[in-house]
């Protein structure tokens, strides 16, 4: 009799745990590869192409595939590299100089008295932030402008300026705490 009870208890346990595991595998199923999305979320979405890829998403894909380094994004800055290093478990590297340097966030502003309505900046804008048409005034929509500077070069009359965005309560961000790690004094580094 005792033998039968023992077998029944073990069998019941197996059924209950099996059901729990089966339920969990359906409920917590992971769709696809979420890591690209996570990398893309860290990137600043300026779509400026300074990393050498056509936009932030292709760069994110390249990072995950191991085809690109994590330090090729100047608009993301030092903070961006640190976050990527954290996420991917890679070594932190300073921003690579050949891809440009970190600048304060700025938006493009068109000098209206010089704009000739040529639409070249509109074609260059990766985020459709410039309103205008042929021989009509062009205007940058501040809330859409990512500060990628891609419109500066095509302008035939050089009427676009980058104006830095002042830091306000809405745009202020926590700075990454920088604590240097040094060997303790009086002791030589091993």
């Amino acid at each position: 009799m005792e033998l039968l009870i023992a077998i029944a208890v073990m069998a019941l346990g197996a059924v209950v745990l099996g059901a729990a595991l089966g339920y969990a595998s359906i409920k917590f199923k992971v769709e696809g590869d979420p890591i690209v999305e996570k990398v893309d979320a860290i990137l600043p979405q300026t779509q400026c192409g300074q990393c050498g890829f056509p936009g932030c998403k292709p760069y994110a894909e390249a990072i995950v595939k191991g085809e690109a380094e994590i330090n090729q994004c100047p608009p993301g800055g030092d903070e961006g590299v640190r976050k990527l290093a954290d996420l991917l478990g890679k070594e932190y590297k300073p921003l690579s100089a050949e891809h440009g340097e970190e600048k304060p966030k700025a938006v493009a502003v068109i000098r209206e008295e010089t704009c000739i309505g040529c639409t070249l900046c509109i074609q260059a804008c990766p985020v459709d932030a410039i309103v205008g048409a042929a021989k009509q005034m062009h205007t940058v929509v501040e809330s859409l402008c990512t500060g990628c500077e891609l419109c500066l070069k095509p302008c035939p009359v050089e009427c676009i300026d980058m104006v830095p965005v002042p830091e306000t309560l809405d745009t202020w961000k926590w700075k990454y705490p920088v604590i240097e790690i040094k060997p303790a004094e009086g002791r030589k580094a091993a």
Binding site: T114, C115, G117, M137
Partner: peptide, 17 residues
């Protein structure tokens, strides 16, 4: 679609050139 309302140019393109 994004409907855009345009304003006329201030500069004369020929003059700027």
């Amino acid at each position: 679609d994004r409907v855009e309302i345009y304003r006329p140019l201030i500069a004369d393109p020929k003059e700027v050139r």
